[in-house]
Protein backbone atom coordinates (compact mmCIF):
# COMPACT_ATOMS: atom_id res chain seq x y z
CA UNK A 1 0.00 0.00 0.00
CA UNK A 2 1.85 3.08 -1.30
CA UNK A 3 1.33 6.79 -0.72
CA UNK A 4 0.75 9.20 -3.61
CA UNK A 5 -0.36 12.81 -4.03
CA UNK A 6 -3.18 12.08 -6.45
CA UNK A 7 -5.13 9.42 -8.31
CA UNK A 8 -3.40 10.58 -11.50
CA UNK A 9 -0.05 9.63 -9.95
CA UNK A 10 -1.49 6.25 -8.98
CA UNK A 11 -2.57 5.60 -12.57
CA UNK A 12 0.95 6.55 -13.71
CA UNK A 13 2.44 4.17 -11.12
CA UNK A 14 0.15 1.33 -12.19
CA UNK A 15 1.21 1.82 -15.81
CA UNK A 16 4.91 1.84 -14.94
CA UNK A 17 4.85 -0.99 -12.41
CA UNK A 18 2.21 -3.17 -14.08
CA UNK A 19 0.03 -2.99 -10.97
CA UNK A 20 -3.73 -3.30 -10.64
CA UNK A 21 -5.50 -0.01 -9.99
CA UNK A 22 -7.39 -1.66 -7.15
CA UNK A 23 -8.78 0.85 -4.67
CA UNK A 24 -7.60 4.25 -3.47
CA UNK A 25 -8.27 5.67 -0.02
CA UNK A 26 -7.63 9.11 1.43
CA UNK A 27 -4.80 9.09 3.98
CA UNK A 28 -7.30 10.29 6.61
CA UNK A 29 -9.47 7.22 5.98
CA UNK A 30 -6.42 4.99 6.26
CA UNK A 31 -5.77 6.54 9.68
CA UNK A 32 -9.34 5.65 10.70
CA UNK A 33 -8.76 2.11 9.45
CA UNK A 34 -5.34 1.82 11.11
CA UNK A 35 -6.77 2.74 14.50
CA UNK A 36 -9.38 -0.01 14.32
CA UNK A 37 -7.01 -2.54 12.79
CA UNK A 38 -3.86 -2.01 14.86
CA UNK A 39 -4.86 -0.52 18.24
CA UNK A 40 -5.29 -3.91 19.98
CA UNK A 41 -2.22 -5.49 18.36
CA UNK A 42 0.03 -5.34 21.45
CA UNK A 43 -2.66 -5.93 24.05
CA UNK A 44 -1.75 -9.02 26.13
CA UNK A 45 -5.19 -10.49 25.46
CA UNK A 46 -4.91 -10.14 21.67
CA UNK A 47 -5.48 -13.51 19.97
CA UNK A 48 -5.67 -12.55 16.33
CA UNK A 49 -8.91 -12.15 14.47
CA UNK A 50 -11.13 -14.11 12.15
CA UNK A 51 -11.82 -13.08 8.57
CA UNK A 52 -15.33 -12.11 9.66
CA UNK A 53 -13.93 -9.81 12.36
CA UNK A 54 -11.51 -8.31 9.84
CA UNK A 55 -14.32 -7.64 7.36
CA UNK A 56 -16.34 -6.07 10.17
CA UNK A 57 -13.51 -3.57 10.72
CA UNK A 58 -13.51 -2.69 7.02
CA UNK A 59 -17.25 -2.16 7.09
CA UNK A 60 -16.93 0.21 10.08
CA UNK A 61 -15.04 2.62 7.81
CA UNK A 62 -17.38 2.04 4.87
CA UNK A 63 -15.29 -0.53 2.99
CA UNK A 64 -17.93 -3.08 2.02
CA UNK A 65 -17.25 -4.01 -1.61
CA UNK A 66 -15.93 -7.43 -2.65
CA UNK A 67 -12.43 -5.89 -2.72
CA UNK A 68 -12.49 -5.88 1.10
CA UNK A 69 -13.61 -9.51 1.51
CA UNK A 70 -11.21 -12.33 2.35
Amino acid sequence: MLLFRSEEEIRQWCGQAGENYGEVLALAKVWDLAQLWYRPRMAPAYRGRTTQEAEQIFSQVGLVSSFWKF
Partner: peptide, 25 residues
Protein backbone atom coordinates in the same frame (compact mmCIF):
# COMPACT_ATOMS: atom_id res chain seq x y z
CA UNK B 1 10.24 12.97 0.97
CA UNK B 2 6.70 13.35 2.31
CA UNK B 3 6.14 14.22 5.96
CA UNK B 4 3.06 13.51 8.03
CA UNK B 5 2.42 12.94 11.69
CA UNK B 6 0.00 11.79 14.33
CA UNK B 7 -0.41 14.07 17.35
CA UNK B 8 -2.93 13.48 20.11
CA UNK B 9 -4.58 10.80 17.96
CA UNK B 10 -5.09 13.27 15.09
CA UNK B 11 -3.54 12.88 11.66
CA UNK B 12 -1.52 15.93 10.62
CA UNK B 13 -0.52 15.82 7.00
CA UNK B 14 -1.27 16.31 3.34
CA UNK B 15 -4.49 15.12 1.68
CA UNK B 16 -2.63 12.31 -0.02
CA UNK B 17 -3.97 9.01 -1.32
CA UNK B 18 -3.07 5.41 -0.49
CA UNK B 19 -3.14 2.82 -3.24
CA UNK B 20 -4.37 -0.70 -2.44
CA UNK B 21 -3.45 -2.69 -5.53
CA UNK B 22 -4.69 -6.10 -4.42
CA UNK B 23 -8.01 -7.17 -2.94
CA UNK B 24 -7.95 -8.43 0.66
CA UNK B 25 -8.28 -12.08 -0.40
Amino acid sequence: VIHYAVKNRELVGPPHRVHFALPAR
